[in-house]
Each structure stands twice: as C-alpha cells, then as structure tokens.
Design a protein around this nucleic acid. Structure first.
Length: 311
DNA sequence: CTCCAGGAGATAT
DNA sequence: ATATCTCCTGGA
C-alpha cells in the first residue's frame, strides 16, 4: 500500500483533487476582540435576513461571499472565527470593513436608548455583537425587490437561481450578482421561469430605469437619508419598507427603520403601539430610538424573530 | 382544498 | 388618509 502510493506520487504527483482540497482555504482566524459576537449574534448577522450572501454549511458554520471573495465563518469554543480562500487579497481589511469591526460600533450601540428601554436592553444583551453589515447597494436592491411577500429561504433560493444562471462562478458553488446592466437584458418571461412571480416585472423595469439613468444608483449613498429614500421609491416594486431595507443594509444608513411584520409585532405588543399607522410608528421609532434607529431595529427584529424575549 | 408569507400598486371610499 | 384587492409561488 505504501509502495503503491509512493509510486503513484512519483509518477503523477499528488492528485489534483487532493491538492485543491488541501490548499483552497487558509487557516481560521479569530475575529478582533472587543467586537466579539456570541453564539446567537454571528449567525443572526449572517443569515438573519439582512444578507442573502451566506448559507449554513454545518452547525454554527456558514459559507458566503464578501464582494467576489469566498469566506467562511464559524462559532467555535466560545469565539467567532473566519477563513478565506488563500488567494484572497487583504482579507483582514475586507472582514473589518464588511463587519464594521472598528471602534464606532461600540459607541453607536451606546447611543441607543437602552438605559431607559428594557426591551431594547434585553435584546442587545441577548445578541451581543449583532451588527449591520456593509453590503453593496446594487445587489441589496435586487434581493429586497424579491423579498416582497416571501420568507428568507425563499428570497435566498430565488436570488441564487438568478445568480447561478446569469452571474459568474466564484467557486465552491457560489455565484456573483450579475449586475443591473446584465439584468436589463433579461426578459420578464425568463425571470418568471425562475419563479420570481410578479416580482419579475419589478426587476425588469427597475433594470431599465437604472440603465437609462447613468450614475443614479451610485448617487444614492451620497444623498441625505430622506432624499435617498424618496429616490429609491421611484423604482417599481420599491415602497417605503423595501427602500428602508436597501438603505439600511445596502447603504449603511443607520437611521433607516424598516417596518416589517416582526418589527410591527414588537412595536404593537412590547411598545404598545397597536392601532398606530405605519407613518406614526416610523415617527415613534425616530423619536424614541434616535438617529441610529436602524441599528436598534436589528436587535428588536432578531429578538422577536428568535423569540428570546419571553423566556 | 384554503390561507398567508419580512409588500407594492391600483382603485375606491 | 384608510381599506381592500390583486399579483406569483410555495409551504402549512
């Protein structure tokens, strides 16, 4: 057996398969301390509904992409770790930027009214380290147009189908966002074949809108929040809720406060706003949570969705 | 089989 | 302003 192996090695070298498997991933690195996650918050950050770039590959183990680079994250022995493809350039910087691992996070958290709000306080406590990722606006817009009346797994699978068909293979079964230029060439009927349903028209028309206004989408992150929201709502299929999701998750506008059914439930039952209109609830959020309402929203959303406030 | 999901848009009041 | 209906699809 030994000799056979040796002979094979001399004649053909290590098998291609084995070589690839052993050299793809670099070693695991711990996340910077001081911005530590906990066993809940890492997963919630990655696959809790703000991003659709990650999928679970095992217990407390996720794979996904940052830009066009494949990464993995996991929760192991009481700490969060990440690793990437060996040929990724400056991965540490990518991680730090994507997860906002700087000092600003802690002070942002401290600015939320947790001192006077037991619901928020408990949510933050249970989900230490939960954060808003820095994701690209174009792709985020695409995913949230798909999100209308769909659950997280459905949004992800439909989105991935589009990526797989029209995007680029990045390896490990992960495909890139095709981009709005490419999407503008795809007939609505083709999108319907991939099960986008009535959202197919929104994607198609949004692609035409963006194509006909060079620089428009790129200008959104540079605008003031209210102006940016008003602009996004010009897009077919983008109302107030989706616009806020795109701004919060794709533009890092931390004042955006998307009100979905989970937040609605939280505001109704925990903040006793049952019967208030969406406009009134939005106003309440702005007054009560302040300039970083979107960050507060993420904690309330996850806490409500995970059902961890009623224990 | 019916009902509704992490909505938006159109229409009617 | 508020209420209701429809739009696709998949899962309960």
């Amino acid at each position: 057996m030994e000799a056979r192996c040796l002979l094979r090695r001399v004649l053909f070298g290590p098998t291609r398969n084995k070589l690839k498997k052993e050299s793809f991933w670099d070693s695991w690195c711990p996340f910077k301390s001081g911005n530590h996650f906990n066993d809940l918050s890492l997963g919630e950050t990655l696959v809790g509904g703000q991003s659709f770039d990650w999928h679970t590959v095992g217990s407390l183990h996720w794979r996904g992409k940052i830009g066009r680079n494949i990464f993995e994250c996991r929760w192991r022995e009481g700490r969060a770790e990440w690793r990437c493809d060996q040929k990724t350039v400056r991965p540490k910087e990518l991680i730090e930027e994507y997860f906002c691992l700087g000092e600003a996070y802690e002070s942002s958290l401290d600015q939320l009214p947790w001192r006077s709000d037991p619901v928020l306080r408990r949510s933050i406590d249970k989900l230490k380290g939960l954060r808003i990722l820095r994701q690209p606006m174009d792709q985020t817009l695409f995913f949230f147009i798909l999100s209308s009346a769909k659950s997280i797994p459905q949004i992800q699978s439909v989105g991935e189908a589009v990526f797989q068909r029209f995007g680029e293979d990045l390896g490990e079964g992960i495909y890139s966002f095709p981009g709005w230029d490419r999407l503008s060439e795809i007939p609505e009927a083709d999108l319907r074949l991939i099960k986008l349903g009535y959202r197919a028209k929104y994607v198609f028309q949004t692609a035409q809108f963006i194509k006909s206004r060079s620089g428009w989408l790129e200008s959104i992150p540079h605008r003031k929040y209210t102006d940016a929201k008003k602009e996004l709502m010009k897009l077919p299929g983008v109302g107030g809720k989706i616009a806020d999701c795109v701004l919060l998750f794709g533009g890092h506008f931390l004042e955006a406060f998307p009100i979905d059914t989970w937040i609605e439930k939280s505001l109704d039952n925990r903040y006793l706003l049952h019967g208030w209109s969406t406009t009134q609830k939005t106003h309440f959020a702005r007054i009560h949570f302040g300039k970083l309402a979107g960050l507060a929203q993420q904690f309330l959303f996850s806490a409500e969705r995970l059902g961890i406030l009623d224990e």
